[in-house]
Simulated assay, not measured.
Amino acid sequence: MQTKKPLIAIVDDDESMREAIKGLMRSLGFDAETFSSAEDYLGFPLLRSTTCLVTDIHMPGMSGLDLHRRLVALGTSIPTVLITAFPGEEARTRGLGADIICSLTKPFREQDLVDCILSAVARGSDGQSGKAGI
């Protein structure tokens, strides 16, 4: 019986960032899907199968923080890694809920992202992804 690979969803309006993270995730043995907007991700049929969400904070339309809030409102708790190009932005993400695993400022070290993803996957496999409160 084949075990299912963790699914990492990457939401970023920067195509080169999406593709770089997708390649990294696949090199680690994960399944990865990319989305150019939060709205596209919300329409993803396998949304509730997502093991970890990596999302940019600043995007046209719905922001990564708004996406997080929408998922919480839907009762969907997905371990999440927030990324931003604005230093200091991670301070705004504190207190958003237990499902925010990390907040990274671009450019970030590849290993920092890997560490965040591995923490999220471990949390998901332990069944510890609880409901987050805002």
Results as ranks from 00 to 15, higher is better:
Y41W: 07
I101L: 09
L24H: 10
E89I: 13
A98G: 14
G130A: 13
T55H: 07
T34F: 05
T34K: 05
E19W: 03
S16V: 10
I21V: 13
F35Q: 04
L24R: 09
G97K: 02
G61C: 09
E39I: 04
M1Q: 06
R109E: 10
E90T: 05
T51I: 04
F86R: 11
S36T: 12
S49Y: 00
H58V: 15
A20F: 02
L113D: 08
G88K: 06
F108I: 04
V72F: 12
T93F: 10
M59I: 09
A132R: 02
A98Y: 13
A20R: 00
S37R: 01
K106L: 07
R69A: 09
F108C: 03
A132C: 02
T93S: 15
A132M: 04
H58I: 15
L7W: 06
T50Q: 05
M25V: 10
A98N: 14
E89D: 15
G43D: 14
G133T: 13
L7H: 06
R94I: 05
V121C: 06
L7D: 03
R18S: 09
G130R: 11
T105V: 07
S49H: 09
K4P: 02
E39G: 02
P6R: 09
F108R: 00
G75W: 00
T105L: 03
A122H: 13
I134Q: 11
R70I: 11
T76C: 11
R18L: 11
P45D: 09
G127F: 14
V72H: 13
R26E: 11
S27C: 09
S36C: 12
S36A: 15
E89Q: 15
L71V: 06
L96D: 07
G29M: 08
E33K: 06
R109M: 07
A85I: 13
G97L: 04
I101K: 02
R123A: 12
D13N: 05
L113F: 03
A32Q: 01
K5Y: 03
L74R: 14
L71M: 11
A73E: 14
T93V: 14
F35Y: 07
D115C: 07
P107A: 03
M1V: 10
L113E: 06
R92N: 15
R92W: 10
G64P: 08
D13C: 05
L113N: 04
D14V: 04
G124F: 10
A85V: 14
A132Q: 01
A38W: 02
V54Y: 05
G29R: 06
E89T: 13
S36V: 12
T55A: 09
S129Y: 06
P6N: 14
V81I: 15
T55E: 08
S125P: 04
L65Y: 03
P60G: 13
G64T: 07
G133F: 12
T84N: 02
L71W: 01
Q111A: 07
T93C: 15
T34P: 04
A132N: 04
R109H: 12
K106A: 03
R69F: 06
L67R: 01
G43C: 12
G130Q: 13
V54S: 05
S16W: 09
